[in-house]
Simulated assay, not measured.
Amino acid sequence: MMTAAAGCGGGSGGGSGDAKVKIGLLASLSGTYKAVGTDMRAGFELYLDTHGDKLGGREVDLSVADEGDGPPTAVPAATKLIKKDRVDVLTGIVGGGSYNAVLPMTKQRQIPLVGSNGRPEVKDVSNVWHTSYLSDEPGEAIAEYVKKKADGPVYAIGPDYQGGHDELRGFTTAFKKAGGELANPDGKTRWTPFPKTTNFTPYFSDIKKSGAKAVYCFYAGKAAIDFVKQYAQSDVADLPLYSAGFLTEGSTLDAQGKAAKDIYSVLNYAADLDNGPNRKFAADWTAKHGTPPTTYAMASYDAAAVLDKAVAAAGKDGGDVTSKTINEAIGKLGQIESPRGVWEFGDRTHAPVQKWYLRQVRPDGKKLANVMVQDLATLGD
């Protein structure tokens, strides 16, 4: 797989116009969300591996940089990709805070930003595209289901940073709109300091005192492992636990083990979805990594697929492949065949109009897996 650093030559912003297309991938390869960022990188690389190491018929210079845990590391990493490596497109980005911090650079240089994890709301999306989801959508998609299933008030809890705020706002707003009641004091989400919270025991005591009949949370990476293991051993272990799917996604589920059994989650992807693109993607991923694919890998794989189509369209009939022409081509792609099912970019948000699925952690052979239970909603624009 070609992962050479971007070579010399013309820069991004105006595009290089040479035979290669220069892609910068920014993801958390260290810190709390290392597992997420690692899967994002691997998903993009898998697409290249299975498509001749080319996008739109052109060879790829892929530069990868470590986002870390947020803006202090994400900004210098993105600066290198944009100003030194002079990439034509930037993709990836795990955290909402990182996204907001990097966005001004891509705007200034007019580089397409094809994000492939949760994204906060963005006012000007002229050069912004997204292949995963808006950060408030997972909670919005499952809120009505939780209202119907929970026998009373629900306790909402999540990490105190941009992504956590967006994720929990999506749930609490839709939950209250559906007639649900939060068990939290004053009806406000309980925030846990990020990234330093590793002991959740005091919060479980608060949940017990609240009289909650169920819990909804958003955690990912190492925090998800700590939360689930401690939840299973706490005084509230008998309360149903609902979450955004990242709580039990990928290697976190392996680390959680039996503690994760029966957790219900919502996500735009499940590894057992029965469609042609997913059968190929899941088989290719499993053959290379020995594990089921994750939504992080899928969305980054789709980012590469989007760029494959856009670069081909931009370079059709000898046209120049530049940041500008790639961006214009993305806007004309229409429906996209994907392992998650067919989706398309929304006109207003440039984020996917897509289905959301309810999953449950159940035995799948000898291992636990996130098994698709039912469709929940189609959201977008």
Rank of each mutant, 00 (worst) to 15 (best):
A77P: 11
A77W: 10
A78D: 06
A78G: 09
T79C: 03
T79N: 12
K80H: 09
K80T: 14
L81R: 03
L81H: 01
I82H: 04
I82D: 01
K83V: 01
K83N: 15
D85W: 05
D85H: 13
V87C: 03
V87E: 07
V87M: 05
D88V: 00
D88M: 02
V89M: 07
V89E: 02
V89K: 02
L90A: 02
L90Q: 06
T91P: 00
T91V: 10
I93W: 02
V94L: 11
V94P: 00
G96I: 11
G96H: 14
G97W: 05
S98F: 13
S98N: 11
Y99S: 10
N100R: 15
N100G: 14
V102R: 04
L103A: 12
P104C: 08
P104H: 12
M105K: 04
T106F: 10
T106M: 10
K107Y: 14
K107S: 08
Q108R: 11
Q110C: 12
Q110I: 06
I111E: 05
P112K: 07
G115K: 07
S116W: 03
N117K: 02
G118M: 14
G118V: 14
G118W: 08
G118A: 15
R119G: 13
R119F: 15
R119K: 12
P120I: 06
E121H: 09
E121F: 09
E121R: 10
V122H: 11
K123T: 15
K123S: 15
K123P: 01
D124V: 13
D124M: 12
D124L: 10
V125P: 00
S126P: 01
S126H: 10
S126D: 15
N127V: 13
V128A: 10
V128E: 03
W129R: 08
W129A: 03
W129L: 02
T131S: 13
S132R: 00
S132Q: 01
S132Y: 06
Y133T: 07
Y133R: 08
Y133P: 00
L134I: 09
D136L: 03
E137N: 05
E137V: 00
P138F: 06
G139T: 06
E140T: 13
E140N: 07
E140G: 06
E140Y: 00
A141I: 03
A143N: 06
A143M: 09
A143K: 04
E144L: 06
E144M: 04
V146Y: 02
V146Q: 03
K147H: 13
K147E: 10
K147N: 08
K147M: 06
D151I: 00
D151P: 00
D151L: 05
G152R: 13
P153Y: 13
P153W: 13
P153H: 12
V154R: 03
V154P: 00
Y155Q: 00
Y155E: 09
Y155F: 15
Y155D: 01
A156G: 11
A156T: 14
I157R: 04
G158L: 11
G158N: 09
P159K: 06
P159W: 09
D160I: 04
D160N: 15
Y161D: 09
Y161T: 02
Y161E: 11
Q162D: 14
G163M: 14
G163C: 05
G163H: 08
D166F: 07
E167L: 12
L168W: 12
L168H: 08
